[in-house]
């Protein structure tokens, strides 16, 4: 369902409209949450909390404001802020031992070797993504993992389009540096 229709559905009936919002955007929200959480096990918590915050905000909004909302970037801004809060809170508390994460089942269709290689790539990429500064990481994830247009990336980051573009490009270059040896990545800090 496109965002403008979702907004109208929210105005007509907040709760059933919100069910449509979750259905439409849960994959994007969860994909971003997964890249912004320090541990994969936290991603579902982060996604659920972000949706709940969005809902609570919508309850207080006037229908005009809901109708004119740019839903996807708005939701992803909430995901980003929620992740920052969680990271800040985690920094204040001592680390819990990491939760045991069972290996994912290989998907049908791909050979085991292909799947193993793909998992390795994903794991390595996920690990180096986590080393990017927050703004670059958010920019790269929004632009290249979930495929947002640059204008929406800028909206989530709260910066001009040009700045968003430079975050994306710096992030990509640093990723490459980290992947090919890790030393060059430090020069543009």
């Amino acid at each position: 369902m496109p965002d403008d229709e979702l907004c109208l559905a929210l105005v007509a009936d907040l709760d059933s409209g919100f069910a449509d919002v979750v259905r439409t955007h849960e994959r994007v929200v969860y994909s971003v949450a997964l890249r912004l959480s320090s541990r994969p096990a936290d991603a579902e918590d982060l996604a659920a909390e972000a949706f709940l915050r969005a809902y609570q905000a919508l309850r207080g909004y006037h229908s005009d404001r809901i109708a004119s909302l740019r839903l996807r970037p708005w939701l992803l801004t909430i995901v980003r802020n929620t992740a920052r809060n969680a990271a800040r809170d985690a920094a204040r508390r001592p680390d819990l031992p990491p939760a045991f994460e069972p290996a994912e089942q290989p998907a049908c269709g791909a050979s085991v070797e292909q799947q193993v290689e793909r998992d390795d790539v994903a794991r390595e990429l996920g690990a180096v993504l986590a080393q990017l500064p927050e703004a670059q990481r958010v920019a790269v994830v929004l632009r290249h993992v979930v495929g947002l247009p640059t204008s929406e990336v800028a909206e989530v980051l709260g910066c001009p389009d040009g700045t968003a573009k430079s975050h994306i490009s710096r992030g990509l270059h640093r990723l490459r540096a980290l992947l090919t040896g890790g030393v060059a990545g430090r020069t543009d800090r």
């Binding site: 849960e26 997964l34 709940l52 270059h173």
Partner: peptide
């Protein structure tokens, strides 16, 4: 992954499947 194109390709592969039960945790 040593050229930018292959990095962006690999990044696009990081999209997560839908989290099962996410809606049940919200509603």
């Amino acid at each position: 992954c040593n050229d930018l194109d292959s990095i962006t390709d690999a990044l696009a592969g990081l999209t997560a499947p839908t989290a099962p039960g996410l809606a049940d945790r919200i509603f």
